[in-house]
């Protein structure tokens, strides 16, 4: 399938708010967006490399655990993302999102347009639904992502 934009929705749908990515993937797929590939990622960020290299625009969606108020929405552009190492230090496995994005930059395979959308989670324990706080924030964030995917500036 030809695509210009890759949307990578990260997370584990069985760890409550870590399921933000899969939740958002379902919402986006329901829109039948043309020219946009929606990809879920369960933590192995190296899988993003090749499809990201083939796209002009990369959107990343993930739950955040930074100590801020649960439900807080984060929007980072390419430069902010690359400068946010500490923000992404938490990772179940060692080659995390920041490392992969930085590595892609070193290898000159990073799309010019990158946006990260995150929501501070409340609970990352076992469970297959988002907490109400995060689900509400996700519903608020979704129109912004759709707007961007439809070619409008953030």
């Amino acid at each position: 399938m030809e695509f210009n934009t890759l949307v990578v929705c990260m997370g584990n749908e069985f760890r409550q708010d870590d399921g933000l990515g899969p939740y958002m993937a379902r919402q986006l797929r329901a829109q039948n967006l043309i020219g946009i590939k929606v990809m879920e990622n369960n933590g192995d960020c190296t899988q993003i490399f090749e499809p990201a290299n083939s796209s002009k625009q990369l959107l990343l969606v993930d739950a955040v655990k930074s100590g801020r108020v649960p439900g807080t929405i984060f929007r980072l552009n390419r430069d902010q993302l690359l400068e946010s190492r500490e923000f992404f230090s938490y990772s179940t496995h060692a080659v995390g999102l920041w490392q992969c994005i930085s590595m892609a930059k070193m290898l000159d395979t990073l799309p010019g347009l990158i946006y990260f959308f995150g929501i501070e989670g409340r609970n990352f324990g076992y469970g297959n639904v988002l907490t109400p706080t995060v689900e509400k924030a996700a519903q608020k964030l979704l129109p912004d992502i759709l707007n961007l995917l439809q070619g409008n500036a953030l």
Binding site: D44, T46, Q47, F49, E50, A94, V95, Q99, S102, M103, M106, L107
Partner: peptide, 25 residues
């Protein structure tokens, strides 16, 4: 400290590794 820095000194190795890993995937 990490593969990010390795990509600076050995880009061909990291690029090759990513393609190898993709085969496993």
């Amino acid at each position: 400290p990490s593969v990010v820095h390795l990509a600076q000194v050995h880009p061909e190795m990291v690029t090759t590794a990513l393609r190898l890993k993709k085969l496993g995937n």
